[in-house]
Amino acid sequence: MITFDAVTKAFPGGNVAVDNLSLELPTGQITVFVGPSGCGKTTSLRMINRTIEPTSGTISIDGEDVTSQDAALLRRRIGYVIQHAGLFPHRTVADNIATVPLLNGVNKAQAREQARELLTRVGLDESLASRYPAQLSGGQQQRVGVARALAADPPVMLMDEPFSAVDPIVRDGLQREFLRLQSELGKTIAFVTHDIDEAIKLGDRVAIFREGGHLAQVGSPQDLLDDPADEFVADFVGRDRGFRALSFITAEKLEVEQVSAYVDRARGASLVLDDTGRPTGWSVDGQEVLRALPGTFTTRDALRLVTDLAITSPAGAAVRVDEAGVADGVVAHEAIARHLTALRRETER
């Protein structure tokens, strides 16, 4: 657990970046620091590994005050990932990943061997090990950055806007991969972003900061969406927070129509399946040409995805599949709306 106890950081000239922050980051969870620029989220993160020293107050990791430890040794026990990866251009990918083990005196052969394993772990091919960072794409560099932070198996990781410099599609992949890794590793992670969507997607807990280094609210993403503490938080989580809240309700209880029966007369669209029963697309107005399926969902997916699929489908309906990818139900957006109305009645009761 990382604990901020009444931490204040005032820079020379009187600018208070962080004002009397008390906050706990639970072990094994992702805590996201989010807020507008100048809110002190990055300063707070950097005080954990002492790249910035607090003016007053204490930060401790598992009860041990970070300022009582040798800064360099402390940092080697804390993984660190930054926006543009910050890889060493003069070192190969393998040697970049091996940085902290090499600092700790692990022998080169062993450190490189381990670096190769980590490459696979973050979803990259081992053949990249001997390349230089300039030969990788932005997304690949960011994965190497994550591998480098993981190399010494630190219990704590600091991530400073790690995915904000890559394009949205790559970012989505990185985020998913990151959550998969975290489910295996269970690190204690402090993650800074200015993107509330990213915060809600990745955070077990989200700490919203406001200008002047004040903590506005901390809680689970659902807490923040359901029950914003004040207008600032409500405004920050956005006007479409009702839609975002659908991220937390699964499609488990959503009723679907039979696939075989599903032909939407009004729109003249019908679902086309291949020989194994997997959906391949929509046939609209009886035409041969298929309109692509925007995607499918399973009972474990969130209602946000289902709603999105229904809205973007040419037939105005989302297709549910089972574990094998075989279509086992169709739901139109009208049905989703009815489901939501029923849910609201249930919570109001």
């Binding site: 940092r75 930054i82 926006q83 543009h84 910050g86 060493f88 251009p89 600092l103 480098r148 600091l158």
Partner: peptide, 21 residues
Amino acid sequence: GETTWAAAAMGFRPLRQLFGV
């Protein structure tokens, strides 16, 4: 810049950072 910042944040000591990075 970012790279030397990252080096310090990963636990390089100043002299090793000078020669190594």
